[in-house]
Write a protein that binds this DNA or RNA. Structure first.
Lengths: 159, 159
DNA sequence: CTAAACGTGGATAATGATTATCCATATTGT
DNA sequence: ACAATATGGATAATCATTATCCACGTTTAG
């Protein structure tokens, strides 16, 4: 049981896009080379973020991706759902049914507990947004490195 | 990201063992046929539960498994850890480091949030024990089926 | 109007984790 | 001694995740 690395990659990709000025756009290749993952898989991730309405995409030459919502509106939970889907962490395999020879196939002793645990987990992920992460960047990393990153984004962006 | 089915199987295996009288023991094969999983894999699961000190095992003819703790002492969380291990749901892939060219490889914007979410999730799983599940059995399943299960256990147990 | 740069979508392969099987060994009861 | 059982290791099968490739549509530049 482990969270997909795609969630982390997506969060940082979105973070990168927060440095774009209004209406500018960043090509997928630039994003993936900056973050260092596989370029083709990154396109798939970005695609999911577009489907989830977190990013907007512009096709064609001078195309790329930009935020569709403000950093304040994008919760970490939204990114998680965009990549992992809405399926819950736990789902009964029907073993309780087998053990007791029950007629009702959906009875499960654990489901209530697991749902409660998961929603407790989710509530934390709903509390923080991309905006809160950008605030923490300054505390966690030297200004120098951050400025270098911003410079790269401004250099590579289009429009 | 999905919980292993082994966790659910283990919980129900333990539940089954709560029906054993003191000092009696149930062979692994009986457990797996009653729950309907793969027998050999079930042995592996039971093994992990023994290592985690939740079950005691008796080798040899007339051997098998029994609880090593009372149902009140076995938290769902303990079963989870026994099967899935102590590794956390999230672990940074170091992508933040790559993105910003940092020297310190362990900086990650998400780790605090994820740890908080996970510990919130765990706290729910620590609240309920096998004993609380046995209490709920009576509400969720007809007495008839439960009695049949208990009869089977008494028939198949040894010692 | 053509070419180049980009995103889209589908098919499919590579990788890795989980589940399952097999076998040799040790231990206990009859 | 033999049968039944747990143990532990090696390994295979299965499945989800990650990665690659290619054909296609759209936009911009020349």
């Amino acid at each position: 049981m482990h969270m997909k690395t795609g969630v982390e990659q997506s969060v940082y990709a979105i973070l990168l896009l927060t440095f774009l000025p209004e209406k500018a756009v960043l090509p997928g290749d630039v994003i993936s080379t900056q973050l260092g993952g596989s370029p083709t898989y990154f396109q798939k991730l970005l695609r999911k973020l577009v489907s989830a309405d977190l990013l907007a995409s512009v096709p064609g030459s001078k195309g790329g991706f930009r935020l569709k919502k403000t950093p304040e509106e994008i919760r970490i939970y939204d990114v998680y759902v965009a990549i992992e889907g809405k399926q819950s962490l736990y789902s009964s395999s029907g073993i309780f049914h087998d053990m007791l020879n029950l007629k009702d196939k959906d009875i499960c002793l654990l489901s209530d507990l697991m749902e409660e645990a998961e929603s407790s987990w989710q509530s934390i992920l709903k509390r923080q947004t991309i905006a809160t992460l950008t605030n923490e960047i300054n505390k966690k990393c030297p200004k120098e490195n951050l400025d270098m990153l911003k410079a790269t984004v401004e250099e590579k962006m289009v429009l």
